[in-house]
C-alpha cells in the first residue's frame, strides 16, 4: 500500500513538474488564503485577551495542531472527494482493473506541489505557537500523538465521504460539510461553541479528539465542560474506531459500485 502510494504520488508529482508555474501559484495561494484564518484570530485578540478562556498562544497551538492534521489528511487523502467525478466520467472502471488499492489510486490521482500550501501554513503557525507556550515537557509527547490521531480522524471522514459517493452522486457537498466544516470547527477552542455541539463532536463525529481533548492534556487545563478526565487519552481509540468504520464503508461502497451504462 505505502509503496504503491509513493510510486503513484511520485509519478504524478513528476508529471506535474512540467507545469511548475500553476502548481506553485496554487500552493502559494492556499498558503496565503489559509493565512487569513490566522489574521482573523489576531484581530479577535486585538480586542480581548482570551477566546473561550484561552490565550493567544494556546489558541494558536490548538489551531496549528488541528491545521497540521487536517492539512496532512487533505494533502495525502483529500482527493477521495473527487470520486463521484470519476464515477460519472466512467474513469473509475479503469481504477478497478489495476492490481492496486482503489483508495490509493484515487487519493494519489494528480498529486502535485499545489497540495503542500496548506500544510506549510499550518506547520508555520504550530512552529510559532509552541515556543510561546509554557509547556511542561513531560506532556509534550502528546503533541505528535494528537497530530497523528487528528490525521487518522480527518482521513476517515474523507473516506466516509468518499464511500457515500458510491451511493449518492451529490455526496461531495455533504462530505465537505464534515471535512472542511470539521476543519473550521477545530480551529477554535470548543468553549466558543455550545455544550450540545461539543457532546456531538465528542461522542458522534469524534472531532473533539483531533486537538481539543488531547490539547487540554498538553496545556494542563481542566475540561470546561466537565467531561471525564480519561477522555483526553482516548484520541487513539476514537481514531481507530472511526478508521475501522471508514474502511468497512469504503469496501461496502466498492461492492455497490454500479459503473455507468454505455
Amino acid at each position: 500500500m505505502v509503496r504503491t502510494y509513493l510510486l503513484l504520488a511520485w509519478t504524478w508529482l513528476r508529471a506535474s513538474a512540467q507545469y511548475p508555474i500553476p502548481m506553485i501559484t496554487m500552493a502559494l495561494g492556499s498558503f496565503v488564503l489559509n493565512g487569513l484564518d490566522v489574521a482573523a484570530i489576531w484581530v479577535i485578540f486585538e480586542h480581548t485577551d482570551a477566546l473561550g478562556g484561552f490565550g493567544l498562544a494556546e489558541v494558536m497551538f490548538l489551531y496549528g495542531a488541528a491545521g497540521v492534521s487536517f492539512a496532512l489528511a487533505d494533502m495525502l487523502f483529500g482527493n477521495v472527494d473527487r470520486l463521484s467525478q470519476h464515477i460519472r466520467a466512467g474513469t473509475f472502471d479503469a481504477v478497478l482493473i489495476r492490481p492496486a488499492s482503489a483508495f490509493v489510486q484515487m487519493t494519489t490521482d494528480r498529486f502535485g506541489v499545489h497540495r503542500f500550501g496548506r500544510m506549510a501554513q499550518a506547520a508555520v503557525v504550530l512552529g510559532i505557537a509552541l515556543p510561546q507556550l509554557d509547556l511542561e515537557w513531560g506532556r509534550a509527547w502528546m503533541i505528535p500523538v494528537m497530530i497523528v490521531c487528528g490525521l487518522v480522524i480527518f482521513t476517515s471522514i474523507f473516506t466516509l465521504g468518499g464511500a457515500l459517493q458510491f451511493l449518492l452522486t451529490d455526496a461531495p457537498e455533504v462530505a465537505n460539510a464534515f471535512t472542511y466544516g470539521g476543519s473550521t470547527l477545530t480551529q477554535y477552542p470548543l468553549t466558543v461553541y455550545g455544550g450540545d455541539l461539543v457532546k456531538a463532536v465528542t461522542f458522534i463525529v469524534p472531532l473533539a479528539f483531533v486537538n481539543w481533548q488531547p490539547g487540554l492534556y498538553v496545556l494542563d487545563r481542566d475540561d470546561p465542560f466537565g467531561l471525564p478526565h480519561w477522555l483526553r487519552f482516548a484520541a487513539p481509540a476514537a481514531a481507530l474506531i472511526l478508521a475501522l468504520a471508514a474502511a468497512l464503508a469504503w469496501r461496502a461502497g466498492i461492492r455497490r459500485y454500479r459503473s455507468t451504462g454505455s
Binding site: 504503491t4 510510486l7 503513484l8 509519478t11 504524478w12 513528476r14 508529471a15 466512467g90 474513469t91 472502471d93 479503469a94 482493473i97 489495476r98 492490481p99 492496486a100 494528480r110
Partner: peptide, 20 residues
Amino acid sequence: RTTLWWDLPLKDSFDLIRHL
C-alpha cells in the same frame, strides 16, 4: 474509454504498470 492515465505520457503509464 482508455484505462491509461489520461495526463501521463504513454511511457510513464507503461512504467507504472510494470511496478503495479
